[in-house]
Design a binder for these strands. Structure first.
Lengths: 118, 118
DNA sequence: TCCTTAGTTCAAAAGTTATTGAACAATTGG
DNA sequence: CCAATTGTTCAATAACTTTTGAACTAAGGA
């Protein structure tokens, strides 16, 4: 059970830009970047939209090559494809993330804390 | 006769990304960047679309704050707002332009040579 | 097995963007 | 003034995107 992802060399600049040009998806990417190394599942983004809507936006990010989704049990562990993006378009992701941090019109990155069993 | 432009501080990241996420507009920006300092008019982009269509795309770029259009006679002299973009989103424009140069799926930047009267 | 959790898929509706041609306006040159 | 050049606006259409809810699948725990 693996989901379709483009290869690094298939990642297209206009598609990446268009995909990042949506506030919901930009917020997802910012949140992923702020938790780099920690794979997140879909429910961590539920404050950004409904479950169905997030499924849609996360699929767009994945199909564009911005994120990777690994199937683990019933969860999809989502990570930024930082290395592939950096190889393909050096500096782009970092400047987008830095720019998002500067854009005061954008909502602050929040997200749910991971529930630790007591 | 001046056309409406956003102030530098009104330039929005998602809007800029969405606007650059269109192949025609990305090609316009690449061409402007390759001719930095030389103001271009609309007809220099006619190989990218019809006159009406370019008017539409150039308006999108201008309204997003990516380009500036100065009315001179019957022409609009179009320039990249490099300084404003750099101030607002450091490194972003350069990484997009560099990435576009790397993306082999994108058409090479062409454009018409300026006709010099003989 | 049954229930819950996690997420997808589908179809419909709503909204947005891109493209076109015809008509228009403004400036410039003859 | 007349014609050509430059570009805009408008209305129509086509195409795409986003959002929604209901129905679904698949895995895991009681």
């Amino acid at each position: 059970m693996t989901l379709p992802h483009p290869n690094a060399d298939q990642i297209s600049l206009p598609i990446v830009l268009a995909v990042l040009g949506d506030p919901t998806r930009l917020a997802i990417v910012r949140y992923l970047a702020s938790k780099e190394g920690v794979p997140l599942n879909c429910s961590q983004f539920l404050d950004l939209g409904s479950k169905t809507n997030l499924s849609y936006h996360l699929a767009k990010l994945r199909e564009a090559g911005v994120t990777r989704a690994e199937v683990v049990g019933t969860s999809r562990l989502i990570t930024l494809r930082r290395d592939d993006l950096e190889a393909r378009f050096p500096g782009l992701l970092d400047s987008v993330i830095a720019a998002a941090a500067e854009d005061t019109a954008l909502p602050a990155v929040g997200g749910h804390d991971i529930e630790m069993p007591a």
